[in-house]
Design a protein around this nucleic acid. Structure first.
Length: 910
DNA sequence: AAGGACTCATA
DNA sequence: GTATGAGTCCTTT
């Protein structure tokens, strides 16, 4: 049977510290706790478990602090001699190759509990190594396909390996341990229990009444002083039980199978053991380290996983290159990765290239490494010429991780990659949206149980980071070749998972992968902006900000930093004693737009702040920034679309974000007007009309809603008429506005509270509106309920095209988290289906444009809008073709309508 | 130097 | 009341 050992690091550290004499090494550094922990770890490793982890508390608050602010309030601060041993301890654990888990916001106990239960369910036998008796609540025997959970305390040698052992030791069964602890309380964690109730009393009561609920129910029947103490403690017992219950159902994003022991780092261990004077351990190390590691140089990475890595070859000669070309030529597919000197795909220069045909084997071809020790490298043009036929062959399948980046880099070096067939980022995104991150490091850990060498391990971080071109070639090879190797391995795992999910595979194969080259082209196209105009606007905004600032200082009676919410809150709510009507999510008095509007009739200052804010936002985010983002080589601005950014399937845009260019205010639209077409060209914008509401009609199949769209009605007006039972032309502007708010609110999963706030009416009235709406559109109500139900039973929701969004929070015991997940469940199918549709449209339009290259370029996507830059005389053709292409990619129960605008700039076109 | 909190721009 | 990214301040390391 496979076995997992989970080590409760915090518990051992404390216990070893207090149990052992205050040892220290020759330099006077304290070593007592360290010594105890190291011996404990060595004992565990001798048993050769299949999986192992060392679990520590991460700094910061956890849910128990939320439940009970006094939790652990009695704990004295950690003694300095103990604190000083934490870092060395972690260094030893790491050097031994044991994975270290510290999960922010989650106590070590709950990490251990969750992993233990998860592993036992997967048929793994679990040993929890701890000095904490609370874990007795988890003990269980193997049963059918499930593994056992056992406890061991290596300090005392005691073991709890069966339910009978727990009963023998505590007098209660494992399932009663939480009740037992709740009654007794915990001095150390400052959780008071029933006074005078110790082990004996707690066990006796539980034997008599079965459970804590039984004890509570019979509290009146307990005689004497103890009975009175019990009744006094009743109100806090349920909370106590929550506090002592170890969580076993968290979503940690860690699979027990990933917790593999890496090869130990002998050099690091020798250094640590020597420093701390652990002679016994040192002797053993030298005896067992048969093949000493190569001498440690300054460049040797600390990651011991390296020793497990595959055969990685640095390609420096023509002969080696030809050998790899032959291997690639013989293969159906290969993984590739580029290394560059920058993260911006529109500027990055190629530093090297890695390739892998077979897992465990990869090469790195350094091209532009510099420095005194850099070896002579093959010329870039020679290497790229040799590889070009392979990279440009549509029949030769290429595999990458976020390959869009590599496509850009290679294009800018004269290679147009074709046959880019698989991307592990997108495989993971389609398989597990909402569950995990999709970067290679996370994926390797999650699916391969492998800790990759990270970029910062080879290049450093922060101010000391060096460009990849200065990384020593040997080290660069290990890093880069590993990336290609891991990409290939991940593809094997992920593609076989996709093969079992035909709907997800279709999303991946038919929507996401075809979109990659399309997005690459859009990003490369870029957009022209009028920098001089934006600079003029910056200047003007600056003038007006000065005026606002002067007025604010006058009103405050002193200089005030209008950019600091904290200072503003102090001024408004303390000095000026204005009422606090809105709070931030963190509970502090808010100075956001709503808050300032709410007090705007009491003082002039809030209005001045709002005015200043809107000016400052426009200047710092747009008019100052955009001109600086112009690529000198192209004279245009190139955004970057993140295809795996939004869990619903939407794209996101960054560097710069061109999906949030202002449009609502007049001043904002002047910024949009600075997105221009070159002479002789036009900007043409196409957007889907009411796409999410149409999708709601399709999904809900509500007859009234379907009819309204079929008739091409003004949907908000039609909603108002339907709900209020009056003719279309009798609907007032206010009524239409209310209907619009309901329509939008529904898409976001809103309740009465939100609608009331939006419309400035009271809750009851909002509730009436909603009831009326559902009365007229019962299909919508049923659909909403079905969706919530699906989310609860399956843990995910789906788009029309089968894209999945996982909602792990849907089962949360935290009501507000659960409600949030329910709203997301309502919204995701609509937002996600709209995303699927426009992605398909982009692929379709791009394919059509192929024949008209340069007559029109697709340059922007803003969720329901596509923007093109086209020759003026080509605009009619575009207008004749694109709407049909966009509307034709989905077959819904309602028509898709596409609106169009044309102009010399984006404001005119929109 | 890095990360969290806050605010605000878009669909 | 959904989904994002970015600038600024301010605390922590």
């Amino acid at each position: 049977m496979t076995r997992l050992v989970l080590i409760d690091g915090s518990s051992y550290l404390y216990r070893a510290f207090h149990a052992l004499p205050p040892l220290s090494n020759a330099a006077g550094e304290p070593t007592g706790a360290l010594f105890g922990v190291v011996n404990m770890l060595r004992a565990h490793l001798k048993e050769r478990p299949d999986y192992i982890a060392f679990v520590m508390d991460a700094p910061g608050k956890t849910f128990r602090d939320e439940l009970y602010p006094d939790y652990k309030a009695n704990r004295p601060p950690m003694p300095e001699e103990l604190r000083a041993q934490i870092e060395p301890m972690l260094a030893v654990v790491d050097a031994l190759g044991i994975p270290i888990l510290r999960v922010p916001g989650v106590e070590a106990d709950d990490v251990i509990g969750t992993l233990a239960v998860q592993a036992a369910r997967a048929g793994i036998d679990v040993t929890i190594s701890t000095g904490d008796k609370d874990f007795a609540q988890l003990v269980r025997e193997a049963d059918g396909d499930s593994g056992a959970i056992r406890l061991i305390n290596t300090m005392t040698g005691s073991r709890l390996e069966s339910e009978a052992a727990v009963v023998e030791k505590f007098g209660v069964r494992p399932t009663q341990i939480v009740d037992y602890l709740a009654l007794m309380g915990d001095k150390i964690d400052n959780v008071p229990g029933v006074e005078k109730c110790g082990e004996k009393t707690a066990a006796r009561w539980l034997a008599e009444y079965g459970s804590l609920d039984g004890v509570i129910a019979h509290a009146d029947a307990v005689p004497g002083k103890l009975g009175q103490y019990l009744r006094d403690a009743l109100p806090r017992l349920p909370l106590n039980r929550q506090l002592v219950t170890i969580r076993t159902d968290l979503d940690l994003g860690i699979e027990p199978q990933a917790l593999v022991l890496r090869p130990r780092n002998v050099e690091a261990l020798r250094a640590l053991y020597t420093r701390y004077g652990f002679n016994q351990a040192l002797k053993e190390l030298d005896a067992t380290a048969a093949a000493p590691a190569p001498s440690a140089a300054a460049t040797t990475p600390t990651n011991p996983a390296l020793a497990a890595s595959g055969q990685y070859e640095t390609v420096l000669t023509q002969a080696q290159l030809q050998d790899w070309i032959a291997r690639l030529t013989a293969a159906d597919a290969f993984a590739f990765d580029t290394e560059t000197d920058a993260l911006d795909p529109q500027r990055a220069r190629l530093v090297g290239l890695s390739l892998s045909v077979q897992t465990g084997q990869a090469c790195y071809i350094p091209l532009a490494h510099v420095g005194p020790d850099a070896p002579p490298q093959l010329p870039t043009n020679v290497v790229l010429s040799a590889l070009r036929p392979l990279l440009q062959d549509p029949g030769k399948r290429k595999i990458g991780q976020n390959g869009k980046f590599d496509l850009h880099v290679l294009r800018r070096h004269g290679v147009e990659v074709r046959g880019y067939a698989d991307d592990t980022l997108l495989e993971s995104f389609v398989l597990e949206a909402g569950l995990t991150r999709h970067d290679m490091d996370s994926l390797a850990r999650r699916h391969l149980g492998y800790q990759t060498l990270r970029f910062e391990d080879v290049a450093g971080k922060g101010a000391r980071q060096i460009p990849f071109s200065q990384v020593a070639v040997d080290l660069a090879c290990r890093y880069a070749a590993e990336d290609a190797d891991i990409t290939l391995r991940l593809h094997q795992v992920l593609s076989s998972q996709l093969a079992t999910e035909p709907r997800l595979q279709a999303v991946y194969r038919d929507i996401e992968m075809p979109l990659v080259p399309v997005l690459a082209r859009m990003e490369a196209n870029g957009v022209q902006i009028d920098a001089a105009e934006l600079k003029r606007q910056s200047h003007e905004l600056g003038q007006r900000m000065l005026e606002a600032r002067a007025r604010a200082d006058a009103l405050a009676g002193r200089p005030i930093n209008l950019d600091s919410p904290k200072q503003l809150a102090a001024l408004l709510y303390e000095e000026l004693a204005l009422p606090v009507r809105v709070k931030t999510p963190g509970g502090a008095p808010s100075t956001n737009e709503d808050a300032l509007e709410a007090i705007a009739d009491l003082h002039e200052l809030p209005r001045v702040i709002l005015r200043y804010r809107s000016l400052a936002k426009l200047r710092s985010t747009y008019t100052d920034t955009l001109p600086a983002m112009i690529n000198p080589a192209t004279g245009r601005v190139h955004t970057s679309y993140n295809q795996a950014g939004a869990a619903t399937g939407r794209l996101s845009s960054s560097d710069p974000n061109l999906q949030n260019i202002p449009v609502r205010s007049e001043e904002g639209r002047r910024i949009r007007a600075a997105f221009v077409a070159p002479p002789g060209r036009k900007l043409v914008s196409f957007d889907y009309s009411q796409i999410e509401l149409r999708i709601m009609a399709h999904l809900s199949e509500d007859p009234a809603l379907l009819r309204a769209f079929a008739q091409g009605a003004d949907i908000h007006r039609a909603t108002a008429a339907e709900v209020l039972g009056k003719p279309l032309d009798a609907v007032t502007a206010d009524e239409r506005r209310a209907a619009k708010a309901i329509n939008f609110g529904l898409i976001y999963g809103m309740g009465a509270h939100g609608l009331a706030r939006q419309l400035g009416i009271d809750r009851g009235q909002a509730q009436d509106y909603i009831a009326l709406y559902f009365n007229r559109y019962p299909g919508v109500r049923d659909y909403m309920e079905r969706t919530r139900q699906q989310a609860r039973t399956q843990g995910y929701v789906e788009t029309v095209f089968g894209r999945r969004l996982a909602l792990p929070q849907i089962a949360s015991r935290n009501a507000s988290q659960r409600a949030g997940a329910e709203r997301a469940a309502i919204n995701a199918p609509m937002q996600g289906t709209a995303a699927d549709i426009i992605k398909r449209a982009m692929v379709a339009v791009d394919a059509w444009l192929e024949a008209h290259r340069d007559r029109a370029l697709m340059i922007l996507q803003v969720h329901d809008e596509l923007v093109f830059e086209a020759d003026a005389d080509f605009v009619p053709t575009l207008q004749a073709e694109v709407p049909a292409l966009m509307a034709g990619v989905a077959n819904l129960r309602v028509p898709l309508v596409v609106d169009c605008g044309v102009g010399d700039n984006w404001d005119q076109a929109h």
